[in-house]
Design a protein around this nucleic acid. Sequence first.
DNA 1: GTTTTTATTAATCATGCGTTTAATTATTCT
DNA 2: AGAATAATTAAACGCATGATTAATAAAAAC
Lengths: 209, 209
Amino acid sequence: MSTASGRRRGRPSRAESENGSPGARERILESARAEFARRGYDLASVRAIARGADVTPALVHHYFGTKEQVFAAAVRAAVEVAARAFAAAEPTGPDGFGESFTRLFFGVWENPTTRGPLLALFRSAANNDTAAAIFRGAITDHLLSRVAGALSEPDAELRAELAAMQLVGVVLGRYVLGLEPLASTDAEVLIRRLAPVVQHHFTGPATAF
Amino acid sequence: MSTASGRRRGRPSRAESENGSPGARERILESARAEFARRGYDLASVRAIARGADVTPALVHHYFGTKEQVFAAAVRAAVEVAARAFAAAEPTGPDGFGESFTRLFFGVWENPTTRGPLLALFRSAANNDTAAAIFRGAITDHLLSRVAGALSEPDAELRAELAAMQLVGVVLGRYVLGLEPLASTDAEVLIRRLAPVVQHHFTGPATAF
DNA sequence: GTTTTTATTAATCATGCGTTTAATTATTCT
DNA sequence: AGAATAATTAAACGCATGATTAATAAAAAC
């Protein structure tokens, strides 16, 4: 691999990039996704992103502007994919919510191309207010709104949040903390375990004692 | 050794000021707890901690050594309090685990003096491997070990982790993300909602509620 | 009153950060 | 061929970081 600092100045000749390898812009995006996913927004550095893309920091700014805009560009695609998945899900009756939501949730988190950006958003949300707001908005818009509309109980929002936080907590343990055996358990097993719990949050009795 | 008093020569360490106000060492610890809780390990700065304690950064290093040691000192107390709470809990039969654990959990998280350091650990664990290891260790040592011993099922660890992640997820939504209405709901209400779910994870059937 | 020990600060070092500006080279349009 | 434009880097700016060193002040013990 050629180091960015060793490369000749100026625009590269077409011969240098005529192979199938992706252009600098794509490489930057890919590196940004990886870096944000590994370290979260604040700890990821434009310089490290540039290094990972074999490029100069100035080029990152040339293509994307500020660090915040790099983050937005890196995360946007995955958030939209997840949002579309939730929006396009065939509507189920209240009895089907549990499994339906659990499956959708693991669908996007087990997908390697969406997991990275979602991890980036997750890690960032723990320390960065802007990222936290995006995360909160994603949950509110794509999860709570659909459920609250279909559920009649007055505590529908709380129910949906408790269900969502069960799933989010599992994501934390599985992908961020690397808790065993949780991290190595087959996703299908987790879905079968969690779907009834999520369903209970949605429609079960509020207390059992 | 000829000293009758047994006191060491020289200026005493950790001198408290004459009035009731806390000495520099205590102020540093307090500021560190606040700063780590607000920003997480990596984003909190020794300089900001010093500023909050009305002290020079060099003094922070003088008392605690490296930043990592400051973090350990700031978090240790709360982790020990939480650990003691879990260790001292009167043992309940398997049927009482759900409510018992949920109560213990919210007990330490609703306590203002332990919440700060726990938040610090939580935020830090999202981006820092060392903090993640501490967090993982705390869950494994004080939660899983007790449950796994008392439960006979071969999947006891997985069950305990799913239960723990339900509670941790709620903590995320309530204290970190500030999800409404979750953040404003009375803790007792949450306990009553969550205890049966936790109980189910521990002893319920694997695929139905 | 000298010695010993602690408390505290000022100054500094090396490093990394986000960002900007100017320069250089290659491609494309006329 | 010449002009315009796009891709890319080098160099720098100002600031924040974690940590160290050397110095000064104060208190206690002798």
